[in-house]
Amino acid sequence: MPIRSRRTEGMALLSDAAAKQERWRAQNGSYATIVSDLRRGYGDLSEHGYCKLTVTADNGYTLTASRNGPQANDKKCGNYTLNALGTKGMADGTPGTLKDCWR
């Protein structure tokens, strides 16, 4: 699978995790602070393991899909972020811009 196609997997990982965060909040009154609480079928990895999920939560949350495995070689687009407000971004210190990397 080409690197560009693998980027989509990171975006899908964040969308799925965001939906699970909202479900967790509805049932528990706050956002999940650890990935395992989201009860994803692949744990902290995307479907094919090209990205790894981390979560930071306080008043809201920020999800990060970090490049993993062969995707770590992607020099154009780095790690993706998505927060509780739906704001998409690129993690600090990683290559790429929102315009060039998020589709």
Rank of each mutant, 00 (worst) to 15 (best):
R7W: 15
G10I: 02
L13G: 12
A17Q: 02
A18H: 10
A18R: 08
A19K: 11
K20M: 11
W24M: 07
R25S: 03
R25W: 04
A26C: 08
A26Y: 14
Q27V: 03
Y31C: 05
T33N: 10
T33A: 09
V35G: 00
V35C: 00
V35K: 00
R40L: 13
G41N: 13
G41V: 08
G41Y: 11
Y42H: 08
D44H: 05
S46F: 01
H48S: 11
C51F: 14
K52W: 01
K52H: 09
L53A: 11
V55F: 02
V55C: 04
D58N: 15
N59R: 14
G60I: 01
T62I: 10
T64N: 01
S66P: 08
P70Q: 02
P70D: 04
Q71P: 03
N73W: 14
N73P: 04
N73S: 15
K76M: 09
K76D: 11
C77F: 03
G78H: 13
N79C: 01
N79W: 01
L82N: 04
N83M: 13
N83Y: 15
N83I: 05
A84S: 15
L85E: 14
L85D: 15
G86C: 10
T87E: 14
K88D: 05
G89M: 09
D92Q: 14
D92F: 14
G93K: 06
G93H: 07
G93Q: 06
T94N: 01
P95G: 04
K99V: 09
C101E: 09
W102M: 02
W102V: 00
W102D: 02
R103E: 06
